[in-house]
């Protein structure tokens, strides 16, 4: 547990300080969300309608931006080998990395999202649904992304392949996450949030095993 917390706090500090990239993901998220109205027009009715989907897609892309470095930096300077030799199992290492990634990317994105929702004229109840859906959904993005990061660590053009292999797997998160917002707008009963929670729970539970298997493979090579 000590080793887990030590790795967690190390990764959070690395991400938060200069050269980390936690702030970059946030800025990217805001920039993408700003470009969309410029592309589709300033009709507030339309913007409120698509806000959930746009912000969810932007959040997924912003998370992916930081995922590229999830294992890569540690792999390049050799600290990943040291961590792998340490007392922490690779599965727990992956879980710590996923948690650190979420605390420095997913959580700040979630906190920023209501502010961007205002720009999209999203009603309050729908904004609350967006906030909750991002809160419970972004861990799944990081967890499934970690599999992709583990598979592409040390691979040439790995950063380019990562989105291609991760994005199709994230379709359920986007569907349920944006669906939760739309359900509120349409006044329907919301079945999306429990489904999203189930997806997220399963992803966080199972992904560390797949990511660790991938890491084990790439560290041996």
């Amino acid at each position: 547990m000590t080793a887990f917390l030590a790795l967690l706090s190390r990764d959070i500090r690395l991400a938060a300080r200069a050269g980390g990239g936690a702030m970059l993901a946030l800025a990217f998220f805001a920039a993408v969300a700003t470009l969309v109205p410029l592309g589709v027009g300033a009709d507030l009715k339309l913007l409120a309608r698509i806000a959930g989907g746009v912000l969810w897609v932007a959040a997924v892309l912003a998370s992916l931006l930081a995922l590229d470095r999830l294992f890569q930096a540690d792999f390049e300077d050799g600290s990943l080998d040291v961590i792998a030799l340490g007392p922490l199992s690779l599965e727990a290492t992956c879980l710590a990395k996923i948690a650190a990634h979420w605390l420095t990317t997913g959580l700040p994105l979630t906190i920023l999202s209501p502010l961007l929702a205002v720009l999209f004229d999203l009603p309050f109840a729908a904004t609350a649904a967006l906030f909750v859906s991002l809160l419970i959904g972004t861990p799944a993005v990081g967890a499934i992304g970690a599999i992709g990061a583990g598979l592409t660590v040390g691979v040439r053009r790995g950063g380019l392949i990562l989105p291609l292999i991760v994005l199709p797997l994230l379709a359920p998160a986007v569907i349920f996450g944006a669906g939760a917002v739309l359900a509120v707008l349409d006044g329907l009963s919301n079945g999306a949030l429990p489904l999203l929670a189930a997806f997220s729970f399963a992803a966080v539970l199972l992904s560390p095993f797949a990511a660790a298997a991938a890491l084990r493979l790439n560290l041996a090579g």
Binding site: T152, V155, I161, L164
Partner: peptide, 13 residues
């Protein structure tokens, strides 16, 4: 896309 990602990953390593 899953197929394409699989092929891309295989080709990259």
């Amino acid at each position: 896309f899953l197929y394409l990602g699989y092929i891309a990953l295989w080709n990259a390593i």
